[in-house]
Design a protein around this nucleic acid. Structure first.
Length: 570
DNA sequence: GCCGTTTTCGGCCCGACTGTTTTCAGTCG
């Protein structure tokens, strides 16, 4: 069972307890546990099976009672506390909380007073004007609720990091037209490099904010203004994405940058440390009584508590504070460390740009090498080559290689792993290649054990050097196939095979958590774009930022090696 | 409900915006 499932259960329990007006700290404890479980690397279910309740309680935020609930769910597929609350607050009623502006207090009040127990009923009542006049409800609240319901229908949830990045750039460019702006910086999950982004957070420093707010809500992509205040405004863009802006004085830049970058749990940790030391931490600075003692830079924020700078990608409360305390933060990989791209398709199969053009862009990126790795026979939809065609294709690459100066083109292929775990090319052909990639492109719905065995068998082929897009997921479009990645990584460690972090923003596969796991197990990661045209080589950025989220350093990534060392290793 | 080199009991992060209020509750991030 996925960790996410457990996380959802505790998030739901937190909502249910809110409705029941239970102890707010208890509610927060459930929320905290949910977050901790979701980002836990390793399977919660395995932890329980190996170490029981005691092992579960090793997870931060999980104590006796939550551990017992996890146990109950594993054994009976139910949590009785949740079942009991769900009787009182059925799922349809719970859905009210997903509407912007509707919180537990309002939901409970509306049900008590006029029997509203679903979004449908709420919409009808609001349209009929039956809400105004109730406690704390007026004309505007009624309209806001209707708007919230509409917004929910339009909203697309989370967005790919790449899409959010594009909008953030456009918004920053728009804001730069205002005079008197000191700094503009996208913060939030975008700055942390999360694979999906819920909304854009833009931080601005300036002495006065009125003009900035006026200009912000006039951004041409704005569909609706949710709130507009003196220092903080929120809008919904035409694509359904929410964008928030916050203006603070220049002297508070560091504190605000830290605060608006998050994550929430990371921030709370710092504030709790503050409380223990008698300091108050907020978005304006660190305060001792009324005196501000830090806040101009992020470095200062960390230094005040004796920590080195923690890069944004690590701020998930996944051990970065402990590592910082011991001065054991990783020196994260950077884009400039990448020496080449090892997964590229050419027009020989489903790529669109000639190899010469790809090589030219790669040179511009400062690469020493690229690998052309086209599809093999079984991936017919992508025009996979037969062995004979592939060998002919290699002759073409040789010719281009001899013509082009300043970069080396490696010959390879993305070979299909057949359902029985064998490859669709013979070893005689594989040994002609500089680099062999292997991938699953068919029969995604195999049971976990079969899929795991299938992939592990392929890794044991001595010619296979890299497993590409290890789970086959497409973010928001296709679930990963059922595979025991931990087992795959262990086999990769044994066989000296490398694992791809596919940099395409739709894939980012391996994800951050398993990158970390790979590092722990001593498996080197290859960050590659899987480019089907020259422009896609620029997607390397998304791979690198994901690798940084997985705590990877230069030495953990294969394609940071200079050509000579790479060839030796292969 | 969790957690602890100031605690095994008594704490638990902090502030902005909105709308409906006569001083603040609810919601959000």
């Amino acid at each position: 069972m996925e960790n996410e499932k457990f996380a959802q259960i505790f998030l739901e329990l937190a909502s249910l307890l809110e409705l029941a007006e239970d102890n707010p700290f208890k509610i927060r404890a459930y929320g905290k546990a949910a977050q901790s479980i979701e980002s836990f690397s390793g399977s919660i279910e395995d932890i329980y099976k190996k170490g029981g309740l005691k092992a579960l309680q090793e997870i931060p935020g999980v104590g006796q009672h939550i551990a017992e609930k996890i146990e109950e769910y594993i054994l009976t597929n139910k949590v009785s506390a949740r079942e009991k609350l769900l009787k009182q607050f059925p799922p349809k009623f719970l859905e009210l909380l997903t509407i912007q502006g509707m919180g537990p207090k309002t939901a409970v009040m509306l049900r008590k007073k006029i029997g509203i127990d679903s979004v449908d009923k709420l919409a009808k009542a609001a349209k009929a004007g039956k809400l105004k006049g109730l406690a704390g409800m007026g004309e505007k609240k009624e309209q806001n609720i209707l708007r919230g319901i509409e917004l929910k229908e339009k909203s697309r949830g989370r967005f790919l990091l790449s899409e959010a990045t594009d909008y953030a750039h456009a918004l920053v460019e728009w804001l730069q037209k205002v005079k008197d702006i000191d700094k503009i910086m996208p913060a939030g999950s975008l700055r942390r490099g999360c694979e999906t982004v819920g909304d854009l957070d833009i931080l601005v420093t300036a002495k006065s904010s009125k003009k900035i707010m006026d200009h912000f809500v006039k951004f041409p992509e704005v569909a609706e203004v949710l709130a507009k205040g003196e220092t903080k405004s929120s809008v919904v863009l035409k694509n359904g994405m929410q964008a928030d802006i916050r203006v603070v004085p220049p002297a508070s830049f560091g504190a605000a940058a830290h605060y608006f970058t998050g994550s929430k749990q990371h921030n709370i940790h710092l504030r709790e440390l503050g409380v223990k030391k008698g300091l108050k931490v907020n978005e304006y600075g660190i305060f001792k009584g009324k005196n501000k003692i830090a806040g101009k830079t992020e470095e200062e924020m960390f230094k005040t508590f004796g920590f080195p700078f923690i890069p944004p990608e690590l701020r998930e409360n996944r051990g970065e504070w402990e590592a910082a305390q011991k001065n054991k933060l990783p020196k994260l990989i950077e884009l400039k460390d990448i020496k080449g791209d090892l997964h590229i398709h050419s027009p020989a199969t489903d790529g669109t740009d000639p190899i010469e053009k790809i090589a030219k862009v790669a040179k511009k990126l400062g690469y020493e090498y690229i690998a052309i790795t086209d599809h093999t026979e079984s991936t017919r939809v992508a025009g996979g080559l037969t062995e004979k065609e592939m060998l002919k294709h290699f002759e073409e690459i040789d010719k281009i290689n001899s013509k082009i100066k300043g970069i080396t083109i490696l010959k390879g292929a993305e070979v299909d792993i057949l359902p029985d775990g064998t490859l669709d090319y013979s070893n005689e052909v594989l040994k002609e290649m500089d680099i062999v990639l292997a991938a699953v492109h068919s029969r995604f719905k195999m049971p976990e054990k079969e899929m795991t065995d299938r992939i592990c068998k392929a890794l044991k082929n001595k010619y296979v050097k890299i497993l590409t897009h290890p789970t086959g997921r497409l973010i928001g479009e296709r679930e990963p196939y059922a595979v025991n990645l931990e087992k795959v990584l262990k086999v990769a460690a044994d066989t000296g095979t490398h694992i791809e972090l596919n940099a395409n923003p739709h894939r980012l596969d391996l994800n951050d958590i398993y990158c970390h796991k790979a590092k722990e197990l001593g498996v080197k990661v290859v960050i590659a774009t899987d480019a089907h045209n020259a422009d896609s080589l620029y997607l390397m950025y998304f791979g690198v930022i994901t690798a940084r989220r997985g705590w990877l350093e230069k030495k953990d990534v294969l394609n940071t090696l200079p050509l000579k060392n790479l060839l030796n290793l292969l």
